[in-house]
């Protein structure tokens, strides 16, 4: 087994503990639960015949963009990705890792990959559940794959930001939440340039590029701002972010002192 895979495997065991996995798994599924309850509520309060596919789509869109992509995905990724290096620092195991004849870039790549894969394992569960439930209500499965791809891209982009943050800052979770809710969702909703670098919007733009036209037509104004919808461009952005992140982690490990 290569050093890369060894670091990846131990990082997953270090950060994805059972209680944390269950808690974050439930958080990931909460959008699907809410969708189910909302759809059932709407059906009960209206004439069944009137609860048409359009209403089902509206609820799906609201849940996907308004809850899952811009709250649940960043929060799950924030918790996992910041702990990928944060737990090493907390457990004083950084010295164990860096005093090995392996390049810092390999460590950085393995850590960023671990942050992404762990986070995506959790966010994919919610994306899949929401996509399938919505498909059952809307009688079309055309949103399931775009949902997964968009989630993967948003998760990868967030991981790229939060993995180095977890090493650089002791209060990375707090700073990360500020970034998500104040910078991305507050300022990003008003300033197009900020929106262009918002991970969840990059994910939604990938979804919009792959999903049926109705998705893009109905998308709220704040959702992707000036970003051009398309999965290819979004995936390229996410890949560049991941690469930059791995390089940054490698560089930080090479340059910064490990005081303890």
């Amino acid at each position: 087994m290569s050093a890369f895979l060894a670091i990846l495997r131990v990082t997953v065991r270090q950060t994805l503990r059972l209680k944390r996995a269950i808690g974050l798994g439930l958080l990931s599924l909460s959008a699907a639960f809410t969708y189910l309850l909302t759809a059932l509520g709407s059906t009960a309060s209206s004439n069944t015949a009137e609860f048409n596919q359009e209403q089902a789509f509206d609820i799906f869109l609201g849940m996907t963009v308004g809850t899952f992509m811009n709250i649940i995905v960043p929060v799950i990724t924030l918790i996992i990705a910041t702990s990928v290096l944060g737990d090493e620092r907390r457990d004083n195991t950084m010295s164990f890792l860096v005093l090995r004849p392996i390049s810092r870039f390999t460590i950085g790549t393995a850590k960023v990959a671990a942050g992404f894969l762990e986070s995506f394992a959790l966010t994919a569960v919610g994306a899949l559940a929401l996509g399938i439930l919505a498909a059952m209500r809307m009688d079309t499965y055309e949103y399931v794959v775009p949902m997964l791809v968009g989630t993967a891209i948003a998760t990868a982009s967030y991981s790229a930001i939060f993995v180095p943050l977890g090493y650089l800052l002791k209060r990375a979770t707090l700073i990360g939440l500020t970034y998500v809710f104040i910078w991305e969702n507050g300022i990003g909703a008003a300033v197009p340039a900020v929106a262009g670098l918002s991970p969840w919007r990059i994910g939604v733009s990938a979804m919009a590029g792959m999903a049926p036209d109705q998705f893009l037509r109905e998308l709220p104004e704040f959702a992707i701002g000036s970003i051009t919808p398309g999965a290819g461009g979004a995936a390229a952005k996410a890949l560049v972010l991941l690469l930059l992140s791995a390089t940054a982690v490698g560089s930080i490990l090479r340059r910064r002192d490990l005081a303890n």
Binding site: A3, R13, N92, T93, P101
Partner: peptide
């Protein structure tokens, strides 16, 4: 080889896994 003063252990690994991990990373 370095033995730091602080703990520096992965608590979820067994002794065998921990030392094997070190060996693997050291090539």
């Amino acid at each position: 080889g370095f033995v730091p003063e602080e703990s520096a252990l992965y608590n979820m690994l067994t002794g065998q896994e921990y030392v094997t991990y070190g060996a693997r990373l050291s090539g």
